Computed example of a mutant assay.
Amino acid sequence: MLLRIFTEPQEGATYDRLLQVARRTEECGFDAFFRSDHYQVIARGDGMPGPTDAWLTLAALARETSTIRLGTMVTSATFRLPGPLAISVAQVDQMSGGRVELGLGAGWYEREHASYGIPFPPTAERFARLEEQLEIITGLWRAPGPYSFSGEHYELTDSPALPKPVQDGGPPIIIGGVGRKKTPALAARFAAEYNVPFHSVDETREAFERVRAAASRDLVYSAAQVLCCGRDEAELARRAEAIGRSPEQLRTDGLAGTPSELVDKIGQFAEAGAGRLYLQVLDPSDLDHLDLVASEVLSQL
């Protein structure tokens, strides 16, 4: 089981804060640093000092780290045109020496689209655009020469299909969600990894089974869970309060408790088929949290 750190900077985090988290992620021996791709606070607080752009952040972190994987959980297809996105991700892959992964989704948070003037089509159209984006991005990365595409929403004519990523075939694509039809079909066609965010072990297992039934090849299966760990109940309660949750809620809906409790629940996700677990860190100022999980949880896996 690989553990990855997953941040939500739209809730309030500067680039300097994210750099601290990424460096500590690497120092502690976690597999990767991921971040959300949002432009507005979702869960709590006022979001001060405001959002940071996902791919600008990852480009900078690519030069400030050396071993951890870097990626988005997940980039919204509504935010960027597929051609420029393919260029950005390929460039960050080059800057990192081939350590980038692209989580890509249809987009869902209507409020941030309205706030920043981003079109927000109906659900069916967003998924149609996502499918075309996946085909275009992977096509641009893999094309041996000029690349063209004609779809309902995007058209490319004789693109030079440059630059190329460092990773052969392009950075791994991650597709997440628990949709019963479209999501398994997209994951089976395009993804190297399928992720189930913030669901129970049983729900995660069922979602994995749907994708396995749709896929004719091997994928990596992963899950994301809110992280809250404490050596004792007092420390756990302090960390839960800092993110506006209760220990009881987090034990049910997240990955929370003492180190031994976390190890046990991680084992349940492993038995369900997960090979990676994304630990959602909602208080990026608490670097001691990462130290604790690395020393007393990661060391047991």
Rank of each mutant, 00 (worst) to 15 (best):
E131M: 08
D93G: 05
D93P: 05
T138M: 05
F120G: 01
A106L: 07
H113E: 02
S115W: 07
A90W: 03
E131H: 07
A128N: 15
R126S: 13
P122Y: 05
P121Y: 03
P122K: 11
R129P: 10
L140N: 00
E135W: 01
W141Q: 09
I118E: 01
Q133A: 00
G97W: 06
Y116D: 02
G103M: 06
W141T: 11
S115C: 04
I137N: 04
G107Q: 08
P119T: 11
Y116S: 08
E125L: 06
R99L: 12
M95W: 07
Q91A: 07
L130R: 08
D93T: 02
Y109A: 13
E132M: 00
G105S: 03
G107I: 09
A124P: 13
Q94W: 04
F120H: 00
L102T: 10
L104V: 04
A124K: 15
R99A: 12
R99C: 10
I136E: 03
F120V: 04
W141Y: 10
V92W: 07
G105L: 06
T138Q: 06
P119V: 08
G139S: 08
R129L: 03
H113I: 03
L102W: 02
E110S: 14
R99G: 13
T138R: 04
I118Y: 07
Q94P: 04
G105V: 06
I118P: 09
R99H: 12
G117H: 10
A124D: 14
L104W: 02
T123H: 10
G103S: 04
G105C: 02
R126E: 11
P119E: 00
L130A: 06
